[in-house]
Amino acid sequence: MTDDADTPAKAKPRHSGHRDRLRERAALGGIEALPDYELLEMLLFRSIPYKDTKPLAKDLLARFGGLEGIGAATHEAVEDQIAKSMGYARGKASRAAALDLRLIFAVAQRVAKEPAAKRPVISSWTALLAYVRIALQHEPREQFRVLYLDKKNQLILDEVQNRGTVDHAPVYPREVVRRALELSSSALILVHNHPSGDPTPSRADIDMTRQVIEAGRALHVEVHDHLIVGRDGVASFKQLGLM
């Protein structure tokens, strides 16, 4: 097998007619009307100019469970699937296509973060939930993050405190609060994911949260909430009456 980078640069794409028709449909009917596989197919046009990208788009969606899953997957996993679907040996073309997709999803994640960052977090709860779901819903390993807030509940920093295994990310309550003092943060929101998909808090989650609350209380740092993200939704400790 060979990388499609060997294809002559001046060759006309074999699927240019189909691509033109798909672009016209998007322009006339609205991009929002396109199914996920066609959106993904169009994103891949520029990365893979000489082959039909529809089968690849469908393979990626099937492998990773949807667009969010593709965005959360590692570069290596996406590149492997691209190479497998397109019949490449892993090389320049598969790396470029995987990087293009990572860039697109990184932009989408930042767009989702902007409303939470520009307005007080507590009054932007819907935007905040959308952001944490995009950031963590399909993470294959547990990740613990802290959103540090100022006195107006404006976001100062979204910081990854720790990355762990498929079911555990170690958390050190005093380090969480110490970092708040460094940032002059008066409040925070704890966020982590459950790669199993079920956002239900575990006993360990509840105990750790209480330890952070106690450590913060002594230094006048308030814990507004602890959000657990899973594929089945987002659990809020405050809404569940756990804090």
Rank of each mutant, 00 (worst) to 15 (best):
D36I: 04
R21Y: 10
M243H: 11
A235P: 12
L188N: 08
M243R: 11
H138G: 14
E159W: 14
R14Y: 15
Y131C: 09
L99M: 04
V132M: 07
L67K: 02
H224N: 13
V171R: 15
D52C: 05
N193K: 00
G216M: 03
D20N: 13
P55H: 12
I134R: 11
I189C: 14
V191D: 14
H75N: 09
P199A: 05
H192T: 02
L181D: 08
Q154M: 15
A127H: 04
S94M: 00
E24V: 11
H18I: 11
K10Q: 15
S202L: 08
H18Q: 15
L128I: 01
D52Q: 09
K12M: 02
D232S: 11
P35F: 09
R210Y: 14
L22Q: 08
R110G: 12
F144L: 10
I48Q: 07
A187K: 05
A108E: 15
I228N: 01
A235H: 14
G66R: 01
G197R: 00
R21H: 11
V107K: 02
H168I: 06
P173V: 03
D80R: 02
A106D: 14
D205I: 03
E214R: 13
S184D: 09
A27W: 15
T74K: 03
G65D: 05
R14K: 12
G233Y: 13
Y50A: 06
Q143M: 14
D6Q: 15
A11K: 13
K92I: 01
L43R: 10
K151V: 02
V229D: 07
P35V: 02
L149T: 03
S47M: 02
H192I: 04
Q137C: 10
G164A: 01
L190N: 09
Q154C: 13
D225R: 05
V166L: 12
R217G: 06
L129I: 03
H18G: 11
R179G: 06
S185L: 07
K113C: 14
A26S: 15
I228R: 03
L190V: 04
K113Y: 13
K54N: 09
K152C: 10
R174D: 11
L240A: 09
Q211Y: 05
V177R: 12
P13L: 13
S236G: 00
P201N: 10
E32V: 10
V191W: 08
A96Y: 01
L149Y: 13
D225M: 04
E41K: 13
V212E: 09
L67I: 00
Q211C: 06
Q211D: 15
A98L: 02
L188C: 08
T126I: 13
Q143F: 10
L181Q: 10
A97W: 00
L60A: 02
G71E: 03
E175W: 13
